[in-house]
């Protein structure tokens, strides 16, 4: 039973840890499917996390915090759009710039506003998103096997967790069942086809980036308002990059993205769980090794096991009407 409980706990933290990855990964999916590479997921999550925690703390409302996170994150996404769509700048450079601006500005503003070394004040109840306990969760806890699964894995998460997982089928539906999704996928493959069909390439790509901004805003809010009780500097800690790795790993497909993020979340959860615990055969494994695993795994799996990951064909290339 101990082992069972340990597994449940690891899976539970897998879910918690994979949520920011999943939101960021889906965010990247909208933008990259539209042909805009977005290495700035990290930065947008970070500003989202900061804006969310700061606003929640000042206005004493989790919802206002979330709204602010989304708003600021979308604003950053639009800056990326302005540079790379309107002015046809290099998308990687623009994304990197956003990451730098985000890392610097959150610390400076945090220090200027709250004088806590770049942190935001610890969030009070009501300023954070609380866990939602599903009906009967406590009663079911003692039922063997199913009980803990229901009580720990399914029940007891914040609304943002359910939102993140609901976004998976929703994103699939948007991409493959709606006009917007058809056009979005088309503009990432062949923008000239979209242009000659009489649809504005720029407006379509801006809308994709707005979707990206909304989702990175949610991802940031989750970090500072659910996982943590406030903003800490550089709290995204590379999650935006892991989300990009997951996106490649998932071949730009929503359901795959969910599994990829769960896998990376699981590795993260396992590495925390296994810290200092000697494993059979290999003995103690260093934390750094476990932390590097998602990246190593991506490289190995991409190199041989999941076949070629073909990115959207027009990805990274600004659209210019050819003469």
């Amino acid at each position: 039973m101990d082992i069972f409980n340990a597994i449940i706990q690891v899976l539970d933290s897998t879910i918690r840890l994979s949520v920011p990855l999943l939101l960021a990964c889906l965010a990247g999916l909208y933008s990259e499917r539209a042909g805009i590479f977005d290495i700035g997921l990290e930065g947008k999550m970070l500003v989202g996390a900061f804006a969310g925690a700061a606003a929640a703390s000042v206005f004493h409302s989790a919802l206002i915090g979330l709204g602010m996170a989304v708003l600021i994150s979308v604003a950053f996404a639009l800056v990326h759009g302005f540079a790379s769509i309107t002015h046809r700048g290099n998308q990687i450079v623009s994304g990197v710039a956003i990451n730098f601006v985000a890392a610097g500005s959150t610390i400076i503003l945090g220090q200027a506003w709250f004088q806590q070394g770049g942190r935001t004040p610890a969030l009070q109840p009501g300023e954070r998103f609380e866990a939602i306990i599903w009906p009967g969760a406590d009663a079911a806890r003692d039922v063997p096997i199913i009980g803990p699964i229901y009580a720990e894995l399914i029940s007891g998460h914040s609304i943002l967790v359910y939102f993140a997982f609901a976004m998976v089928p929703f994103t699939w539906w948007v991409l493959f069942r709606t006009r917007f999704g058809l056009r979005l996928r088309a503009v990432g493959e062949n923008p000239a086809a979209v242009d000659t069909a009489g649809i504005s390439v720029a407006w379509l790509r801006y809308r994709a980036l707005i979707c990206t901004g909304i989702l990175t805003g949610f991802a940031g809010a989750y970090l500072s308002m659910v996982q943590n009780g406030g903003f800490v500097k550089d709290m995204t800690a590379g999650k935006g990059y892991i989300a990009l790795a997951a996106l490649i790993f998932a071949k730009w497909k929503p359901v795959n993205a969910m599994f990829a993020c769960l896998l990376f979340g699981f590795l993260d959860a396992a590495s925390i769980r296994l810290q200092g615990t000697p494993l059979p055969i290999v003995g103690k494994v260093s934390v750094q090794f476990m932390q590097a695993l998602p990246y190593v795994l991506t490289v190995i799996l991409l190199a041989g096991f999941i076949g070629k990951a073909i990115p959207p064909r027009a990805g990274g290339v600004p659209y210019v009407k050819e003469r």
Binding site: R177, T178, R179, F180, L182, R183, A186, E189, N190, A193
Partner: peptide, 26 residues
């Protein structure tokens, strides 16, 4: 056009309706 304005990994139907969809759902 000389260089076809088609999305290579879309089906024929998807290419036909692109930009001429009847409503928001496909």
């Amino acid at each position: 056009h000389q260089h076809f304005m088609l999305v290579d990994n879309f089906s024929v139907l998807e290419n036909i309706i692109l930009g001429a969809e009847t409503d928001a759902l496909l």
